[in-house]
Nucleic acid binder design. Structure first.
Lengths: 112, 112
DNA sequence: CTTGTATTATCGATAATTCGATAATACCTG
DNA sequence: CAGGTATTATCGAATTATCGATAATACAAG
């Protein structure tokens, strides 16, 4: 019975990641960062989320180890820090964006 | 401005699906059903979730159109009803189960 | 050291999720 | 139709997530 990792325990970290991404704002942020690293200001401008909320969602993503940030001059540059999350985002894009006919080739917010 | 599907609106259904699966119990249920259709009794026995909770989670999955059910004699047989959810589950399995060395080749709960 | 900008943290209120326990419904068997 | 099993729905309480507004901190420029 020692090789039964509880099935539930194995599902827990996965469910946690899903929960972290299960918010439109956080999902869009993660998508944008999967494309390239961006500063908070760029994210705010590109995604149309007001600063306090953006910061709060970035904090959640940081706490879940999905993103990391480094300071660069005055700006804080965020980037994906979790390969698994990155793979997941890519798959979501394939499933939900590529299959339905959308103009933009990716979840690309206008450009920055 | 009419070709701006709001990026947020495009993310909403995806985030909803993630939220639906973002619970260990529901995730495990969906995994089990991705493998094969099962009755409620089989799920209860295989996944070690007590009936009322199981039923509640199945109701959530039904409401989100992730699963459907058909009656078969006394039992209610559940099966995945959403191709996108199925693809997502498969990807999750690839990312989180296949990469780490686990004995079982799949999220296979003992057999039923 | 002071000003201005970028970023993060906090507060309070509201809404949503979750869980255990229990009741109600639907179906098969005889 | 009665008895037994399988499944679903409901209730109340506790925890957690979410949001807008505002305050606090960190850095760069002069």
């Amino acid at each position: 019975m020692s090789d039964t990792p509880s099935l539930h325990d194995r599902a827990l970290p996965v469910a946690d990641l899903l929960k972290t991404l299960a918010h439109p704002a956080r999902l869009v942020i993660a998508c944008a960062l999967a494309e390239q690293a961006r500063s908070v200001g760029e994210l705010e401008q590109a995604l149309d989320i007001h600063q306090p909320g953006l910061s709060r969602h970035l904090a959640s993503l940081r706490a879940a180890r999905v993103v990391s940030c480094r300071r660069e001059g005055q700006s804080m540059i965020y980037h994906l820090a979790n390969d698994k999350a990155g793979q997941l985002i890519m798959t979501l894009h394939t499933i939900f964006c590529a299959s339905e006919a959308h103009a933009s080739p990716a979840l690309k917010p206008e450009a920055v």
